[in-house]
């Protein structure tokens, strides 16, 4: 059988299937309760954010500051490597996300790593061990939220899922100047990932981020039992990784362990998954991040440093 015969057969498939496919249109209207629920949740978060802000901006080690490697909206970074739980991860967006982002293209569902030194663990046999089950949604072009005007292609918003499943704006990231993409999550699209994975036979892929390594790792789950990984990093030279290249888990672990960041973590004795300090990633990273609930955080970025690129400190590094 060849593709022409298949195409001919498809022409002979019963009309009912053509009709069904022509008539199908999944309802996209946001339910009223979701709209009002989102509004109520936003109000609650603003209040909660205002109350929590003093704790979030405590410097490392300061009283009330929480773990030094707190990851803010990305997760608290205190978990350790656990048992494999592959079934907890799905590339499909939640119903809430589908409703909320219905008119916005390029939204990515991203899972977070529990700790950024996961690759140093000897007990890691499955990448799911290094991941939290919580996903955030990356919304390109709207760093200030989808209810605000677009902020350009070199920016994105992070939407987090609340306890009740409601998605709310959690922060925004933007590059202050032109930059080649993908740059970690900035400019990353499913098309890029699909192209990079085109040479392998995989079931599906999960987008993950190792926040403090400023690295996106796409986890392609393969039927042959040997998963593959592609990374998109803002600082690949410090991680020993090459963007767009497909690695096995072993190769990924090996490269990260041998990298300057891996060595830095090893030297600090951080092999149990609790990073003691921010690994050195060289020069300051050139993006800005605005935080939910921070007064004035949605205003235009302020200039930082003298060399042009700048970064407003994310909460986990304060």
């Amino acid at each position: 059988m060849n593709k022409v015969k298949f195409a001919a057969a498809m022409s002979l498939v019963d009309d009912q299937y053509y009709e069904e496919a022509a008539a199908y249109q999944r309802k996209r209207r946001i339910p009223v309760w979701v709209r009002w629920g989102a509004l109520a949740a936003c109000l609650c978060l603003v209040v909660a954010g205002a109350l929590a802000l003093p704790h979030l901006i405590q410097p490392n080690g300061a009283e009330g500051g929480g773990p030094s490697n707190a990851g803010g909206l990305w997760g608290n970074g205190t978990e350790t490597i656990g048992p494999a739980h592959r079934e907890d991860f799905s590339p499909e967006m939640s119903q809430e996300a589908v409703s909320l982002f219905q008119d916005i293209p390029g939204v990515l569902k991203v899972y977070q790593t529990t700790v950024d030194s996961w690759f140093l663990s000897d007990s890691l046999t499955d990448y799911s061990q290094a991941l939290t089950g919580k996903a955030v949604y990356i919304v390109p072009n709207y760093s200030e939220g989808i209810d605000r005007p677009p902020t350009g292609p070199l920016s994105y918003a992070v939407y987090v899922t609340g306890e009740d499943g409601t998605l709310t704006w959690g922060g925004g990231v933007s590059l202050p100047e032109e930059h080649s993409v993908p740059y970690a999550l900035i400019g990353l699209t499913d098309d890029i990932i699909l192209k990079d994975l085109s040479g392998i036979d995989y079931e599906d892929y999960i987008i993950t981020q190792s926040t403090r390594l400023y690295t996106v790792i796409v986890w392609a789950r393969c039927a042959d039992g040997e998963d593959r990984f592609v990374s998109y990093s803002s600082r690949p030279e410090f991680l020993g990784l090459v963007d767009h290249v497909v690695y096995t888990l072993e190769e990924l672990q090996q490269r990260l362990s041998n990298s300057s960041v891996g060595q830095s973590l090893t030297d600090s004795g951080d092999t149990d998954g609790s990073i003691g300090k921010q690994p050195s990633l060289g020069p300051s990273l050139d993006f800005s991040l605005s935080l939910k609930g921070t007064p004035g955080s949605r205003s235009p970025r302020t200039s930082g440093g003298t060399s042009g690129p700048h970064r407003r400190c994310p909460p986990w590094s304060r």
Binding site: E20, A21, R28, E92, M93, D190, Y205
Partner: peptide
Amino acid sequence: NRVIFMRRYAYMDSYTDIAARVSLTENN
């Protein structure tokens, strides 16, 4: 799944068009 299959191989829709119709991402 039937609709996705038919839209792709009968109507020859692009992933983008199918995603919009079934309210999924292109990745999905």
